[in-house]
Nucleic acid binder design. Structure first.
Length: 301
DNA sequence: TGTAGCAACACACTTACGTCA
DNA sequence: AATGACGTAAGTGTGTTGCTA
């Protein structure tokens, strides 16, 4: 299986998935206060992204026995180290399924077996003892393809999955872990770019809409100031409302309700200098545009 | 029951290396 | 051949979470 960079699942779309769709690339949950766009991300995206507390539990073993792609040619296999690390991580400490309270039972393992993976990420490079200190490994396309396949299934790995994947690819578990971290970062970056583009378009649309409304308002004001228009206006209307039946008598020609009910008079005549026009922004085409934009921002509302 | 210590993890940020035009 | 841009593997710092004493 050959993949190219543009095939690695980084093609994101502004299209909102249809109901029931599962976005293959859900936004990642960040524990740190990062810049995100909650209005843009669709709800089912977050539904498909488990929280950090349970992400290891449900999805972890769902695909565990999933048959990966067929054997991979490895460009480098640190066989002894890999074997040691495989033995170290099989206990799946994060799983509440395999071990109820064994989340951190890697502690029980000998030190030299525990931290072959971890030490490499915290200063004690496992390459430093060797001939290649931080020699950058370029993953083969087959390895990348397998990792991509796995990432599509679940964008995080529990230790057991990590071990299995590492063993399958002939990589160190740390390498698999790093690959998934970087992959999640790339996904998030891509999603952020898409979100920014979407918001940019929203801003442009709203700016244009605002411009149009300002223009419309100006025209209406101009129209209002013309005497011809003013003469055509109906006299101020006095509405009366019955406090008991809450009926409103609007027409001056009608027998007023207050005469019938001896009620208080509610004057809606504009007692301000600028008489407003019967203009409902939500019923105008512009309002429809705004509503469309609002519904785009809140797809479920 | 509350809490400190620890380990494991994820993420943001950065560095360093490989590839390509 | 040299070089800068770019992609990405890997290192580092920090916050969170769950377990244990």
């Amino acid at each position: 299986m050959m993949v190219h960079n543009e095939d690695l699942g980084l093609t994101l779309s502004l299209n909102f998935p249809a109901a029931g769709d599962t976005n293959p690339m859900p936004p990642l949950v960040s524990s740190s206060p990062s810049f995100n766009f909650p209005l843009i991300t669709t709800p089912n995206w977050s539904d498909s992204c488990p929280s950090s507390s349970d992400r290891h539990n449900v999805d972890a073993y769902k695909v565990e026995t999933r048959s990966f792609l067929k054997g991979i040619d490895v460009n480098r296999i640190p066989a002894p180290a890999a074997e040691a690390e495989e033995e170290a991580g099989v206990s799946s400490p994060n799983s509440t399924i395999s071990s109820i309270s064994g989340k951190r039972n890697e502690r029980d393992l000998p030190v030299n077996e525990i931290d072959g993976e971890r030490s490499s990420s915290r200063g004690i490079s496992d390459d430093e003892d060797g001939e290649n200190s931080r020699k950058k490994l370029r993953l083969s396309k087959d390895q990348s393809a397998v990792l991509e396949e796995s990432f599509k299934e679940h964008n995080t790995l529990n230790p057991k999955q990590k071990q299995a994947l590492a063993k399958r690819l002939g990589l160190r578990p740390r390498q698999v872990e790093v690959w998934f971290q970087n992959r999640r970062a790339r996904t998030k970056l891509k999603q952020t770019e898409v979100d920014c583009e979407f918001l940019k378009r929203c801003c442009e649309n709203l700016t244009e809409e605002n411009r149009r409304l300002q223009k419309e308002l100006q025209e209406l004001r101009t129209l209002k100031l013309s005497p011809q228009f003013y003469m055509q206006m109906a006299p101020p209307t006095t509405l009366t409302m019955c406090p008991s039946c809450e009926r409103v008598g609007a027409s001056p020609s009608e027998k007023s309700i207050d005469q019938q009910h001896n009620m208080a008079r509610v004057t809606t005549t504009n007692q301000i200098h600028h008489r407003t026009l019967p203009f409902n922004p939500w019923s105008t085409p512009s309002g429809q545009v705004v509503q469309r934009q609002m519904s785009a921002l809140h797809p479920r509302s």
